[in-house]
Amino acid sequence: MILLRSFINFIVPFLILVTNITSEETTEEIVTQAIVKDAEQESEQVHTSEEKDSVKINAELAVNATNTISTNNITKINCSLEKIYGPVEIVNATRLMELLILEPGPSNRSRNDKDGKQLPGTCVLVLFYARWCIFSSHAAPHFNAIPRSFPHIKAVAIDAIKHQSFNAQYGIVGVPTLMLVHNGKPVAKFNDTVYTLELFAKFVSHLTNLQPNGSLYVTSADFKGPVANTPSNEVDYCLVLSWIFIIACVLYFTSRSRWWQQFVELIQNTWRESNAQHEHVD
């Protein structure tokens, strides 16, 4: 018994010591593995973020390159330099049709080809305006100054209200609308909401091979004409007829509605009751 107790007293502390050492080593291994795992995750996150940044930079470079290529690949129309035109001409539908008819020659035969814009041809700036429109009046002096800056472009103005035959053909939905025509074929519309000579010149230079002739300025004579800079007090009969038609439609559909019928019946019943009370008093 004494030997057995001595053996137990010796073995138990030894086992406890071995267990503590093993647990400490296991804990150190777990901590070490956790640290290594965290380090690997951080490294992966760094590489992932670097890859994302790299992809983002490459995408931005690709977009910039695409924009540069699209800007450089714009095919500018070739305006003929043979004629020098005078001031703005106010035209009617017949005169505008004459100006937009193609002249015989190679430009006429190849007007549907991709290289049609590169062939020299007549360039016409057409302003669709209305005499009563205040925005057309604001744009008038700046448009009147265009022939001085671009003498090789024919500038004409047409009243889109009086001559409506071109509105549907060229998609004119509002005034003023400035359109560039090359060899009788519409090229582009001026889409800015501010109508100034500088923006008009930028619009023309961006689409054609022409640059402004000298400095851009508007004189006092440009405010006098040909296109008037003060709106007229004309009666728009089309607008009046439109309002009459709208009011007539509203009255018709209102009279056919149940609400209107109930309202009429209420008035009739009230009138009958009032007449019955007067007869009873009499």
Rank of each mutant, 00 (worst) to 15 (best):
G184N: 09
Q261F: 02
I74P: 07
K189L: 07
G116N: 11
K76D: 13
A130F: 01
N112M: 06
H206L: 15
V250W: 00
I11P: 11
H206K: 15
V63N: 14
K224M: 14
L197W: 02
W260Q: 00
T230H: 09
P120G: 02
Q261P: 04
T26L: 09
P226I: 13
R272T: 02
S165Q: 06
Q33K: 10
Q262I: 00
K224S: 15
C79I: 11
H182G: 02
V173F: 09
R5H: 01
N213V: 10
F10W: 08
E42R: 11
A228Q: 08
Y85M: 08
E82C: 13
Y85A: 08
T22C: 08
L210G: 08
R131Q: 06
V18A: 04
K37T: 03
V264P: 00
P151S: 04
S215C: 09
L119Q: 03
L210R: 06
S205L: 15
V156W: 06
A276V: 06
V204W: 14
V12F: 07
I90G: 08
Q164S: 04
E25T: 07
K224P: 14
K83E: 13
R272I: 05
P104Q: 01
G184Y: 08
N209R: 12
S137I: 06
I158E: 04
A65W: 09
F150D: 10
E82R: 14
E28I: 12
V235W: 01
F190D: 06
P87I: 00
L127E: 06
T208W: 11
D192N: 09
F203T: 11
W243L: 14
N144M: 03
I246A: 13
H138R: 09
A276T: 06
L127K: 03
C79D: 09
R5E: 00
F203V: 12
T193H: 06
I161G: 05
N64S: 13
A130Y: 01
R131H: 05
P151D: 03
R258G: 00
L3Q: 00
K76E: 13
L241R: 12
N67T: 06
T196I: 07
P212K: 08
A160D: 01
V175E: 01
T19C: 02
F14V: 15
T19H: 01
S220M: 13
A188M: 11
A201L: 09
V31N: 14
A39N: 03
A155G: 12
